[in-house]
């Protein structure tokens, strides 16, 4: 059901999204997103060898935070701003938990808005990809 602005409050958590993308999922993301940096599929690439593994695309995590927000909105609102920072690498096969919390709800210039804090947490509990979103409701 499309999300209604009146149906949530500051402090509410967004429904979590868990993923453990393997090499195949990274290849699918490369094909869809057009990023063929070997760091995301070739274990023999020098930078992969230096790191000890291929790594999940930062942009895959960014897009997954977008998916988390999109699933929550269910097209009841639109994303105005979506940002994140890549603070730590995530490796294929390792589970990432994507989540968020409503930080602020307000009305401005006839628009109903909300700001959401976002995170992608690894198995050790470290937030590798902090982010935020501003969403607007008609």
């Amino acid at each position: 059901m499309p999300l209604d602005w009146n149906s949530f409050n500051e402090g509410d958590a967004l429904p979590e999204l868990k993923k453990a993308p393997g090499v195949t999922e990274l290849v699918k993301y490369s094909a869809g997103g057009g990023d063929f940096n070997p760091l995301h599929h070739d274990f023999n690439f020098p930078q992969s060898k230096m790191i000890g593994s291929i790594i999940i695309h930062g942009r895959f995590k960014y897009a997954s935070l977008g998916e988390l927000v999109s699933n929550w909105l269910d097209h009841g609102g639109r994303i105005r701003l979506l940002s994140c920072q890549y603070r730590g690498m995530d490796l294929p096969g390792n589970e990432i938990t994507l989540g968020g919390t409503v930080k602020r709800k307000w009305e401005e210039g006839g628009e109903k808005l909300a700001e959401v804090e976002l995170h992608a947490t690894n198995a050790e509990g470290k937030n590798t990809t902090p982010g935020s979103a501003i969403v607007v409701f008609a």
């Binding site: 057009g34 063929f36 940096n37 942009r59 979506l82 890549y86």
Partner: peptide
């Protein structure tokens, strides 16, 4: 590698061989 047009985006590579993404912000 990145599918975008050559000469745009992070093209200031100099002799630094390694690249990581730092962060992204999109405004709609």
């Amino acid at each position: 590698t990145f599918s975008g047009p050559l000469g745009s985006g992070p093209s200031l590579k100099m002799d630094l061989p390694n690249l990581l993404d730092g962060g992204t912000e999109t405004e709609y």
